[in-house]
Design a protein around this nucleic acid. Structure first.
Lengths: 224, 224
DNA sequence: TGATTGCATAATGTATACAATCCATGTAAT
DNA sequence: ATTACATGGATTGTATACATTATGCAATCA
């Protein structure tokens, strides 16, 4: 029994397609505006920069098109879509509707899960780097919607959240989730086992506040 | 000035990627179970059958993976995912949540739109072939959610509806939308300008009934 | 007989090739 | 000077090639 068998037994070998690994890198370039909006993506340059061929790059871009990062224009490749207040106004309600759905119809919430949410929230409090804070915040929401057990819902939310990340990066404080977010998380966690309906209202309010921040940043006017 | 210039001026020339055209064909093969579930898709056979190379076929399959039709397994290609009551229970609530969202926050509904809905519903009544009925039903729902103006929402719903079409084809009466559906459509249209909230409730009920039909067909028991 | 190994074949994942088309620059004509 | 057009290089969309990995089957062994 050699090391390969051990690897299989322990599920160490985890093969991933190149396109999945590239996703992170290319999304990052878009979020950080290294690939500017309204500009066609040079597939050759991107591929050689990433050390792969055009094929997996194009596969990744097709996925990013589904998530609303880019648009494929016949004959001129993939174009990075611009951010807009209008799109933000479209995206956020989708997210809060889907997270509401995750919390509806929940009959019983395990104490373990609430404990896990509280733990993540503590980690969020003590996190130092913005990157870490954003990561933990995303984990907290993933954990929250896991109560539904709805995998299709989780997958759709992943895509929508990725789009929203663009707006948060571009317009929100680079520090990441603030104290108010942490308080709201705690509030939601505490509501979870008493009244899922109230928790659903709270999660919607949480996102509404996030949208308001973004819209102020984009449009300047406090209430638009 | 030759015919090509005219074509461009009139926007007659509409270039589409092969992957988009293949989408319909491959989805159809899955829905009709010509590509059976739990079975890996032979890309070579499919490509030559469709008269194209593997490249656009694979691009299409990546899109179908996003819509939950297939799953890419590293090393063994794309596998057609099986239908399950569990997935149906996940999909339908997503659809009614998103259609609810489309109807919420609607301030003013144009009379034109209501007239168009009623017109489509009449077409649905007089449609003859099941294919036509399904097409018109889909158009009716597209028209309904267009009141929101939320394009991201519309795109997500397209994907979710495509998945649901698999269930409807496999388990619902092949005749397509029935008289009750038409009545419900009419009811929803009439509620639309008075009370969007009630219309939202009605559209949810519409989909809940659809889910119930599917679940009975899959599981047999009337209330599960 | 039943399980296992080894090999041959087929299929996948990625890279590369090639034809079509886009875009920028330059040139001529008005 | 501006427009129209021609031309070349660059880029895309699709096809094909190639290396790796999976799959099936026959031969071997317990």
């Amino acid at each position: 029994m050699d090391c390969i068998h051990y690897a299989i037994m322990l599920e160490i070998i985890e093969r991933r397609h190149l396109r999945d690994q590239l996703g992170e890198a290319i999304r990052d370039r878009i979020v950080r505006q290294r690939l500017p909006a309204n500009q066609s993506i040079g597939e050759n340059a991107l591929a050689s920069e990433l050390g792969v061929s055009r094929t997996p790059v194009r596969e990744t871009l097709l996925g990013l098109e589904r998530d609303g990062f880019v648009k494929a224009v016949p004959g001129r490749g993939f174009v990075v879509l611009p951010l807009s207040a209008e799109e933000a106004r479209q995206l956020y309600p989708i997210v809060w509707s889907l997270e509401r759905l995750a919390l509806s119809d929940v009959t019983e919430v395990s104490p373990d899960l609430i404990a896990k949410l509280r733990g993540l929230n503590r980690n969020l409090e003590s996190a130092t780097t913005p990157q870490e804070r954003k990561q933990i915040d995303a984990d907290w929401h993933r954990c929250l919607i896991s109560v539904s057990g709805n995998q299709r819902l989780a997958a759709m939310l992943e895509g929508a959240k990725a789009s929203i990340a663009r707006y948060e990066h571009a317009y929100m404080d680079a520090a990441g989730p603030c104290d108010q977010s942490i308080e709201e998380h705690e509030h939601i966690a505490s509501l979870l086992d008493e009244s899922p309906a109230l928790a659903a209202d709270a999660i919607e309010a949480h996102w509404r506040r996030g949208l308001a921040v973004i819209l102020v940043a984009i449009e300047g006017t406090p209430q638009a």
